[in-house]
C-alpha cells in the first residue's frame, strides 16, 4: 500500500448498489473546490469499474491508484 494520503472528505458508500456509488461520487466531486481530495470507500462490485472510469471521463484526476481492500475498494480523487 502507498503512503497514506490526507483526504478532505470521505464518501462512505459501503452497502450501496449501482448506480448510486457513481452518481454520489460525481455529484460530490462537482460540489467540492478544485484541488480538494475525496476518498471513496465502496463495496458494490459494479462500482469498482464504473466509479474510476467515469471519474476520469468527467475530467477528474486520481491522487493514487485504486486500493483493493478485501471486498471493497478505496479511491482517492482530486475534485
Amino acid at each position: 500500500m502507498q503512503a497514506k494520503l490526507e483526504a478532505d472528505f470521505t464518501l462512505d458508500l459501503r452497502g450501496e448498489s449501482c448506480p448510486y456509488p457513481v452518481i454520489y461520487t460525481l455529484e460530490t466531486l462537482e460540489g467540492m473546490n478544485k484541488g480538494e481530495m475525496l476518498q471513496v470507500i465502496t463495496d458494490c462490485p459494479g462500482s469498482f469499474r464504473n466509479v474510476p472510469e467515469e471519474a476520469i471521463a468527467h475530467g477528474y484526476k486520481f491522487a493514487q491508484d485504486p486500493v483493493k481492500n478485501g471486498q471493497e475498494y478505496l479511491f482517492h480523487i482530486y475534485a
Binding site: K4, E6, A7, D8, F9, T10, L11, D12, L13, R14, E16, P19, Y20, I23, Y24, T28, Q39, I41, V67, N69, G70, Q71, E72, L74
Partner: peptide
C-alpha cells in the same frame, strides 16, 4: 426518477479520512 433528491437520498459524506474495513 433516479436523479431526483427524494429518490436517491443523501450519501454519508464526512470530513477527513475514514477507516476502511479491517480485513479478515
Amino acid at each position: 426518477l433516479t436523479k431526483t433528491r427524494w429518490w436517491k437520498g443523501k450519501p454519508s459524506l464526512i470530513r477527513g479520512n475514514a477507516k476502511p474495513t479491517q480485513l479478515k
